[in-house]
């Protein structure tokens, strides 16, 4: 029974991982800007699925709400407002070969580091914390950073509104 569920969870993990990697490659190299945006949505939802796998269901909800709901919508609006009809600017820059080299090097270093250090991490069962515990933790130990983060978000949104507001000299 346990073997069976392990096999199923393994298969689900690889399914999600393949989905995420394929969608991320779609975001990185797609020629169609809407396709890239929808691939981003698929990748974000896949990561939310992995969060559920990792017993962090609150994070999965936050991921779906903020990334799936808000971020993709904002980016779709940005695509609409910037009128990307000319797909010429979707081509890669001239530095793309160097970017491939840099990313392959970074990936090799990361994987060597991960595999080299993984012996010190024994296989354990997943830790689980309830949403209640997380909320109590956030609003007691981390109350001031939490409020500061909300202040940062508010200031950034006000700054964004001020930045796109038409100034009187320019546009009238």
């Amino acid at each position: 029974m346990i073997e069976n569920s392990n096999l199923i969870s393994m298969m689900l993990f690889y399914l999600l991982a393949i989905t995420i990697i394929a969608s991320a490659i779609g975001v990185a190299i797609s020629k169609n800007v809407m396709l890239a945006c929808l691939s981003l949505l698929a990748a974000l939802l896949g990561v939310a699925g992995l969060f559920i796998f990792l017993a962090a269901e609150f994070m999965a909800l936050v991921q779906i709400l903020i990334y799936g709901g808000t971020v993709v919508t904002v980016i779709v609006f940005a695509i609409i407002l910037t009128n990307l009809n000319d797909f010429s600017n979707l081509k890669s820059t001239k530095q793309a070969p160097f970017a491939i080299l840099a990313c392959a090097g970074a990936l090799a270093c990361l994987i060597i580091g991960i595999l080299g250090s993984s012996t010190s991490w024994p296989k354990l069962e997943l830790n689980y914390i309830s949403i209640t515990y997380l909320g109590r933790y956030l609003f007691t130990d981390w109350a001031i950073p939490f409020e500061l983060a909300s202040l940062v978000l508010l200031i950034a949104l006000i700054g964004a509104v001020l930045m796109v507001k038409p100034s009187n000299e320019d546009d009238k």
Binding site: V27, A28, L50, L54, L84, S92, A104, L110, I111
Partner: peptide, 27 residues
């Protein structure tokens, strides 16, 4: 059973794909 290593390698791959996109995109 999927261990920590799987997730770490997946996130390393994801990070490098994102890095490639950020370095090579024009728009």
């Amino acid at each position: 059973m999927t261990g920590l290593v799987h997730y770490q390698i997946l996130s390393a791959i994801l990070f490098c794909i994102g890095l490639y996109g950020a370095l090579s995109r024009k728009s």
